[in-house]
């Protein structure tokens, strides 16, 4: 495993474009802290985000992992283009000739994805902890460590998403097409959802139930949108008489769905490579 990681690291780190993308990814992650300085002013109303409670523990775990999750597209670009470069430079072929097995090739990419997701998780945990300790109104240990399971959701989400990218990169071979395909996949899931809603009678629960099993939707179910949980929004909603109490926790079956998809992508990445003549 160490050998496979070293191989992948040499490939990744010596490429200037992926180095720049990775560095900017982490730079952007730390820029979440800039949110603290945002000042809105609507006429006489001063609105400072940091003072509205978004950096309160435990809420901060939720919002930070959610925002950081959006940035993963940067790494998706790196993964997909690394894979397509292996094809266009024919280095994939050369790697196999040099004695890497097809299984090892796929595993080396997957290990990299896991390690990367881990680093990203640790990074976001550190940033969140620091921001929280500076701005949170509540700083007792029990509150600080409430909801840290969002970090687990974040990790599983990244691994799942990057595995999907690996699979698309292997299947499509051209980075631009693979990213386009990812986007189309996303749209198709929503179209499918809309179609089900259209076909089935109103208020049917079936579309929602099926929808959460689709790969991209299951990934976003791991960290549900945090905005409606925000104090200010809640207060506002209460005033207009809307009840926004929702279930924000991630359930075991939601993890299971994503883990199954991850294994599925990993397996089909391998099968695709195995059946291909290079």
């Amino acid at each position: 495993m160490k050998r496979l990681l070293e191989i992948e690291f040499i490939k990744l780190w010596n490429s200037r474009s992926s180095r720049i993308l990775i560095i900017s990814y982490f730079a952007l992650l730390s820029l979440i802290s800039i949110l603290t300085t945002i000042d809105f002013s609507f006429g006489k109303i001063q609105f400072r985000l940091a003072e509205q409670g978004i950096f309160n523990f435990p809420y901060i775990w939720h919002i930070n992992t959610f925002i950081a999750g959006v940035l993963k597209i940067f790494i998706a670009i790196v993964i997909v283009s690394m894979m397509s470069n292996e094809y266009s430079n024919k280095t994939l072929k050369q790697n196999l000739i040099d004695g890497l097995s097809k299984k090892e090739f796929v595993l080396s990419k997957f290990y990299m994805v896991v390690v990367f997701s881990l680093i990203s998780t640790i990074f976001i945990a550190t940033v969140t902890l620091i921001l929280g300790l500076i701005y949170s109104d509540y700083k007792t240990a029990s509150i600080i460590f409430t909801d840290t399971e969002f970090l687990l959701s974040y990790f599983v989400k990244l691994v799942g998403f990057f595995s999907l990218c690996l699979f698309l990169g292997m299947l499509v071979r051209k980075s631009a097409f693979a990213l386009g395909f990812l986007f189309i996949w996303y749209i198709l899931e929503w179209l499918f959802f809309g179609l089900l809603n259209y076909v089935l009678p109103d208020n049917s629960e079936i579309p929602g139930k099926i929808f959460k099993f689709l790969p991209i939707q299951s990934l976003s179910n791991l960290i549900k949108e945090p905005v409606s949980r925000f104090n200010a929004v809640m207060t506002l909603a209460n005033q207009v008489g809307e009840d926004l109490t929702r279930d924000y926790t991630t359930h075991w079956y939601e993890y299971t769905i994503v883990i199954i998809w991850t294994l599925f992508f990993l397996f089909f990445t391998y099968i695709t490579l195995k059946r291909r003549n290079l």
Binding site: S15, N89, T91, Q94, D98, G99
Partner: peptide, 16 residues
């Protein structure tokens, strides 16, 4: 293949 050395058609390396 670890005991084999092989070159196929064109030299394939990471250009960067």
């Amino acid at each position: 293949l670890k005991k084999v050395g092989a070159i196929i058609e064109r030299p394939n390396f990471y250009p960067y």
